[in-house]
């Protein structure tokens, strides 16, 4: 069996395993069965194992990293998303609904990638560079983390809506931004004029004041909604908005430096290969857009009026931009990165 055939077979098996994992996770969410949770985990592990073998087969078969074509790129990104999910959520029952959706996304993503399958050709001389390998590996990891965070943010928005409705109907109050709900049990209430709470990268307005005389804001770390009472619909089965927000923050804060480094490594390569570190080709332009959106996300997390749903929307839009960058830019717009289209 040739390496190419092996990779195709293994990736097909992986695809079925992920479909199985998504189903098992869905059953976990519906029935709360321990057995379904275990099934999810083992499906995911089996899938990732086959997935890895498939990627190694591509690497060995072509003698280069497995991201020479759009198909390979999508398959590699999927592997990283699966890995992230496996580490962060797959083994936790309360995240079952999220797991189901993430694996569902992976299944769709791999299908979309397979639809773009091309027989790979050899690399142009310009693409034979260590910086390039580094650049693509980072861009791949960053994209996977951003996509994962984007899915989580989208579900956060669903959950927040549900929580607000729930609070209105059950408690007779309207929650504003759920992560703030349990706030107020600590030292100093946030002043109206103070923009800075310091949970993110930046702090601009009022920064000097905050440094010298820190105003302490409290993040809710208790669940704003009583769990296990009336749960209905997707919103009711999702993890709490606080847990989702925290998960999104983790993936985005991890993704941001990786994506930044990916852009910088790409610039170094561009400087070597073309004598230009930046020339606003379509891929670079979209990467800048993605980077800007997530920079805005990190700032928004610390800004009154933006944190919570506002920031989550930025995360979702950013993830959509990542998909756009992977598919649309490669397929429709030609540029220096057009080789990635196949």
């Amino acid at each position: 069996m040739s390496a190419t055939t092996l990779s195709k077979v293994m990736l097909l098996v992986a695809w079925f395993a992920y479909a199985g994992a998504a189903t098992a996770a869905l059953m976990t969410a519906l029935t709360k069965g321990e057995r379904w949770l275990r099934a999810t985990f083992w499906c995911a592990v089996a899938g990732l194992t086959c997935h890895t073998i498939g990627l190694v087969a591509i690497t060995v078969g072509h003698g280069r990293a497995p991201w020479g074509t759009l198909y390979e790129w999508v398959v590699s990104v999927s592997a990283v998303i699966v890995l992230i999910a496996l580490v962060l959520i797959v083994r936790r029952a309360e995240f079952a609904a999220l797991t189901a959706i993430v694996y569902g996304v992976v299944v769709v993503l791999m299908l979309a990638g397979a639809s773009q399958y091309r027989e790979p050709g050899a690399l142009q001389p310009a693409l034979q560079s260590n910086w390039l390998t580094f650049h693509v590996a980072l861009a791949l990891t960053g994209s996977a983390l951003l996509l994962f965070g984007g899915v989580v943010s989208a579900l956060y928005l669903v959950r927040v809506r549900w929580e607000n409705r729930y609070l209105t109907s059950v408690l007779g109050t309207t929650g504003t931004e759920p992560p703030d709900l349990a706030a107020g049990d600590e030292v100093v209430p946030l002043r109206e004029t103070d923009d800075r709470e310091g949970d993110a990268l930046a702090g601009s307005g009022g920064g000097a004041v905050a440094l010298a005389a820190p105003r302490v804001e409290v993040e809710a770390d208790t669940e704003p909604v009583p769990v296990g009472t009336t749960r209905r619909g997707l919103g009711g089965r999702l993890p709490t908005s606080f847990a989702l927000d925290d998960l999104a923050r983790k993936s985005f804060t991890l993704a941001f430096p990786i994506y930044t480094l990916a852009i910088l490594a790409g610039a170094v390569w561009g400087e070597q290969a073309w004598g230009r570190y930046w020339r606003w080709d379509p891929k670079e332009t979209t990467s800048f857009i993605i980077w800007g959106l997530f920079a805005a996300y990190l700032h928004a997390r610390a800004t009154r009026g933006w944190k919570g749903t506002g920031a989550a929307w930025l995360g979702v839009i950013g993830a959509v931009a990542v998909v756009f960058n992977s598919f649309f830019v490669n397929l429709v717009i030609a540029g220096l990165h057009s080789y990635a289209g196949g």
């Binding site: 930046a202 601009s204 379509p282 857009i289 959106l293």
Partner: peptide
């Protein structure tokens, strides 16, 4: 000096950068 202004400006920059992916550019 507020963060809100900075975020809106950053988003405006991002939106402006979106245009060259839709309209061909003289340079590229």
């Amino acid at each position: 000096r507020s963060m809100r202004t900075a975020i809106w400006l950053l988003l405006a920059l991002v939106a402006a950068t979106l245009l060259p992916t839709l309209v061909p550019q003289e340079l590229a």
